[in-house]
Design a protein around this nucleic acid. Structure first.
Lengths: 173, 173
DNA sequence: TCACAATTTCAGCAAATACTGAAAATTCAA
DNA sequence: TTGAATTTTCAGTATTTGCTGAAATTGTGA
């Protein structure tokens, strides 16, 4: 039934478009999120040209964002024998996707925060004025909390899929 | 000792500047993050003019971002008797700050994602082609996972400070 | 070694986002 | 009321971020 293919194409296009829009909120650029969506739902690995055509973007843009996705570990290059061009396929396991994104966010958001907090807590150590104490205590409180969050994030991200879900389900039960 | 005040001022200025830079990573604009940092470490509530002066920004900018922070619930207006102007003070409890930010991020990042995934999963339901099944399964897998994360987030954010930490510590132990 | 295919880089341009400054609206005391 | 203090809005501008398209580089088979 041809209508089904049409239906699928429409659903998939919508997913790609919307996922791209969402990327913006997540601090990921739109194109990168769109390419990721495209590859996550592609039955076969795609080339740079496939991506350019499907999303109507330039070669430079496609190239840059494909490389960025590879750097994140969300997609990987695939070699096909007899083919000179590079193909790409996405990691599809949701738990793996989650751990990759979590790791990256930790690196970009949590670790720099921790560095700042430690530094400021250190610099304000031992200041005797009331304002100094308030500042120092606030820095320490933030540092402790963020450090704690950081450890949690590591622990969870290093768990096996099934275990994490099981554990969480128990928590929620 | 005057040197201590100088030391504190420097540490605080650094915190404000760096926290602002970090805000960018978090999808929060720099000024908003700076104002938040300023108020979190202020011993007293501040006026719009205090903020303008301290950060060297325009009235419009200060105003807009103060209102935005109030909307988030990260700061609150304070009335001082005999004073016509509005003062602002920040929530300083780290657990409360965390729950507020978590709630906001869930609203902006998780809920829209869930909406898209449900829609696309629904639209691809029952398509008989192999590609259709692959797409539908991927949508469902993502939907399940994101929905699960959403519930977790709610549960944790609604916990009391002490309880959450205690629980997490047990998990990590 | 050459010719061609494919990848990579990047200067210039475009779009999105944030900020200023001043005018308009609001609030309040007299 | 009136007018001074304060808050709010927003058109215009600046800054940041992302994209294009073409040139430079790299890789490959003959």
């Amino acid at each position: 039934m041809i209508a089904e293919e049409e239906k699928l194409k429409r659903a998939r296009d919508e997913f790609v478009a919307q996922w791209g829009a969402l990327g913006t909120q997540w601090g990921i650029n739109r194109t990168m999120a769109q390419i990721h969506a495209l590859l996550m739902t592609a039955p076969q690995p795609l080339t740079t040209d496939d991506v350019m055509e499907e999303l109507e973007i330039s070669r430079g843009n496609a190239h840059t964002n494909l490389k960025e996705l590879v750097a994140w570990g969300l997609i990987r290059p695939v070699v096909k024998k007899g083919e000179r061009r590079e193909f790409f396929e996405a990691e599809k396991d949701v738990w793996l996707i989650f751990t990759i994104v979590a790791r990256e966010r930790k690196r970009r958001e949590i670790e720099p925060a921790l560095a700042i907090l430690s530094k400021c807590a250190g610099e304000s150590e031992g200041i005797q004025t009331p304002e100094g104490k308030v500042f120092h205590d606030q820095m320490r409180a933030l540092e402790d909390f963020v450090g704690f969050a950081s450890k949690m994030s590591d622990r969870i991200a290093s768990m096996k899929h099934g275990f994490a879900i099981q554990l969480a389900t128990k928590l929620l039960g």
